[in-house]
Every structure is written in C-alpha cells, then in structure tokens.
Design a protein around this nucleic acid. Structure first.
Lengths: 163, 163
DNA sequence: GGCAAATAGTTAACATGTAAACTATTTACC
DNA sequence: GGTAAATAGTTTACATGTTAACTATTTGCC
C-alpha cells in the first residue's frame, strides 16, 4: 500500500517524507476530482469558478457584495471582478450598486441562473456518487476527519496565521 | 467532527452527501497546501509548475522530451510550451532539437537550475513537515491510503451507470 | 517510392489566479 | 468640518490551464 502514487508518477523512490507523499497524493486526488467535475460543468457552459459563484449566491438566498463572494471562494480579490463580468455577460447575474454604501456592488442571480443550477443539481450529485461512491461511509467519514485534521496547522509562526 | 468545513464555508447545511463533503474538504485542504508551498517557491522566483518541471528533470537524471515532462505533470500538452519558454528565458533549462527524431525537443537542466533546486530542498522539506507534521505517522499513512482508494474509480470510461 | 496516419510540438483564444497599484467612497477622529 | 485611514472594487501585468487548430516530421503500409 501507499506506493501507488510512486508508480503513477514514475518517480519511484524520491519521496523524502510521509508528509510529502501525503501532500502529493492530496494534490493528485484533488486534480482528478476537479477534472471530472469541471467536465460535467462545461457541458452546462460553466467553469468551476463560475458554478461556485452561482452556488454561493443561491445558498445565500439574497444578493451579496462582490467581496463577500470572493471571501467564500478562497480566492484573491481581483479575480472576482472578471468572474462576475463573464457571468453578467452570459446573463447569469446582475450587478447593482448599493444605495446605502455606494462603494458596494451587490450581485444577484437571474432567473436563468436559477434554472441552470436546478438542471445541474442532479447530475452533479450523481457524479459525486460515481467518483467516491465506491468508498464506504466509514472510509468517507475517516477521510473527512483526516483532512480536517490536516488543515489544523498548529500556530503558524512564519507568514501570517490563518483566519 | 466532520462539520468544520461547514463553518469555514458559511454554508452550513447544504452538503447533500458525504461524497460531496469529502470532495469539498479535499479541495480546500489541497488549496491550503498549494498556497503555502507556492509562497515558499515564489521566494525562490519559481511557480509551482516551474518547480515541478525542474524536479522532474532532476529526478530523470537526463534531458527529457517536452511531452514526456508534460505527461508526468498531469497537465495538458499545450501548457508545457509556455512553461518551458519561461524557464528557458530565466536560464534554468535549455532546449535541444533531437538528432534522431527532429520532431522531438529535449529539455535539459542548467547548472544554475541544479543549484537552485539544492537551495530549495531543505526549506521545502521543512515546510512539508510544518504543514503536516502535527499528524501522527499512523494518521498520515491512513490518509495516504484513503486518498489512493479515492482515486480508484471503478470502471471509468465515459459516464457509466455507477459503482 | 509514395502517401495517409500517427506523433511531437506549437500557436491562438479564452478563463482563471496572483500581486501591485489605482479609484471611489465611507469612517474615524481631532 | 476637514483630512487621514480604511474599505470596496477595479485595472494592469503576468503565469497558468484548457480546447481547437496548425506545422513539421516520422512511420506504416501498399
């Protein structure tokens, strides 16, 4: 066990630590899932980032400021502008300058976007099942817990700490 | 347990399945690690992709054809051209048209690149330890195994029924 | 020998992620 | 009430990932 990535990458024997092996496994698994999900979304004319913006807006149930969306996307701020530009161009969101605070731009889903999301829901859920459904509930829960543990970096002295 | 991501994403309650929760956890963890490693590499003037090309070349111990590098990067073919362009511009690799097969372009590390890689080795290993060192060996091995299991999608050609 | 198909790599066009600098507006505070 | 600092968002410049279409070369095969 724990040697498959070595074969896949043709890099037999150059893992210098268990930590590094775990990290590379994580990246590779994440990539594989991203690719599959991205392909499905492309069939609906969306990129993953665009879908995530729409999903966040639907979850919120109301228009959100651009930076609020950005903060939930784990992305850097400037990227949100172009993302919303493209969604707006495709008729999936509308921008509205706030009245109370004119610096703020509220972003709202269009009806078209809601319909699109509804069409995606089932196939996406099915895909999630296809991709990880071969794992038992116990394995999935264990994986989730280990990933949460992995993200808990104890006191990050270098650079700024997490929020 | 298994509810932290909900809080982090402010999306409480909209996981529709364990599979989806695992996938989102995976992405978030992968992103966090990428960010930290990317920041370290940036201090050495490299992006993650560039570093990976150099690491692959060092591991191979000899010049490699462009597409051979691309295949080990899990990337799509066209991206490799620009990547190598930039590495060449920065004096880290050299391109050489093959004699036996003139379609092939061999890419070779420069001495400068070897020195750079040596300077990165220790800090990077240290960072890997900082990022996941709080997990026990048992947890790390378990995580690695679960990730390998996750990647084993049973029969994946087009969209088959399911597992 | 000669030509279609395969292979290696590139170019083009676009979406995204990132850092740095900028504009517009609001808030703090004296 | 006037100005510095903070906040929301945009612009710019560049690296990357993606698909589609293209060039150059080699191979397969009759």
């Amino acid at each position: 066990m724990a040697g498959k990535l070595r074969a896949e990458l043709k890099k037999r024997g150059d893992f210098e630590s268990l930590e590094q092996e775990a990290t590379l496994n994580l990246w590779r698994t994440s990539d594989q899932l991203s690719n599959r999900v991205g392909r499905l979304l492309r069939d609906f004319g969306l990129t993953s980032s665009q879908y995530n913006v729409l999903r966040i807006l639907r979850g919120a149930g109301e228009p959100l400021p651009s930076l609020e969306i950005a903060s939930r996307l784990i992305q850097v701020v400037p990227a949100i502008t172009g993302l919303i530009d493209r969604l707006e161009r495709n008729g999936l969101v509308v921008r509205q300058r706030s009245e109370e605070d004119r610096r703020v731009v509220h972003v709202e889903l269009t009806r078209q976007a809601r319909h699109l999301l509804e069409r995606i829901d089932h196939p996406l859920q099915q895909l999630h099942h296809e991709l990880l459904g071969h794992m038992s509930r116990r394995e999935l829960k264990s994986l989730i817990e280990l990933l949460e543990t992995a993200r808990e970096i104890p006191d990050t002295k270098t650079k700024k700490s997490q929020s």
